[in-house]
């Protein structure tokens, strides 16, 4: 009979998995209209069981908007230019840029401050650049939230389960007291699928291998001027925006 210790050897990555040496994402704001952005957010939050405090299973639990701001969990969301890129607001910027809603998510930094501070390795950077989160390891100290300069991390201030109307049973829900964030759909990449937001974006979002000169991401970076959020902080974010 098998002994418990022999199990590690019996687990391996799925051969169909999408792999990269260094994952990166390009958001083409020229192609990202309001509805598409909403679709991306909806797709992500639905399959990852992200709670909506304004839309609980039992209407009695509904949370008013002021409280919702405090407890909100978001993996991908919209923000105006001056909030997405604070301190970079130019004086005479085209009107359309001011009106744009930028799609923000975890930047999967190459030098992530959140990983540097985590006292339990509950968040760490994988070899392929994805900044992962182990919700069973997290002690809920929220040091990573203080460290992240992008506001990409959410904490479960209360039980999220009463606020998930249509639970996707193929993905776990979270408990009280742990931190969560975008994982670049690690569970989908492992099955050979693109991240949910990319799939829903009608070509506005692209992920690919930054280390592969022939990749789609590199082609976009070669042919377009891109900006990234708060590069001066040295975290080396890996989400690029074409404006």
């Amino acid at each position: 009979m098998l002994a418990p210790g022999e199990l590690e050897a019996k687990l391996a990555p799925n051969p169909k998995a999408l792999t990269a040496k260094r994952w990166a994402m390009v958001v083409d704001m020229r192609k990202l209209d309001e509805q598409t952005a909403e679709k991306c957010i909806e797709a992500c939050h639905r399959i990852h069981n992200v709670p909506d405090f304004e839309d609980p299973i039992d209407p009695k639990d509904k949370v008013d908007p002021a409280e919702k701001v405090r407890w909100e969990v978001k993996w991908i969301w919209k923000e105006k230019y001056e909030h997405a890129f604070p301190g970079q607001a130019e004086v005479a910027i085209p009107e359309k840029i001011h009106k744009l809603n930028f799609l923000l998510l975890c930047n999967h930094c190459d030098n992530p401050p959140c990983v540097r501070v985590c006292p339990t390795k509950a968040t760490w950077k994988r070899d392929d650049g994805v900044v992962m989160m182990d919700q069973h390891r997290c002690i809920g100290c929220r040091y990573c939230m203080a460290a992240c300069p992008y506001g990409a991390r959410s904490f479960n201030w209360r039980n999220p389960r009463p606020f998930i109307k249509s639970e996707d049973e193929s993905y776990p829900t979270r408990e009280i007291g742990v931190v969560e964030k975008c994982t670049l759909c690690a569970e989908r990449l492992a099955k050979g699928q693109l991240p949910a937001c990319v799939e829903a974006s009608k070509g506005a979002l692209t992920v690919g291998d930054l280390n592969d000169a022939k990749s789609k991401v590199r082609e976009l970076l070669r042919n377009n001027f891109t900006i990234r959020r708060k590069t001066q902080l040295g975290s080396n974010p890996q989400v690029y925006y074409i404006v």
Binding site: K10, L11, A12, P15
Partner: peptide, 22 residues
């Protein structure tokens, strides 16, 4: 041993990306 197995699966899947069990 199902508990050890599940604990091991969880760690291997999340931390090492090993999601296929033979």
């Amino acid at each position: 041993y199902h508990m050890q197995m599940l604990d091991n699966w969880r760690n291997q899947v999340v931390r090492n990306g090993n999601r296929q069990y033979t």
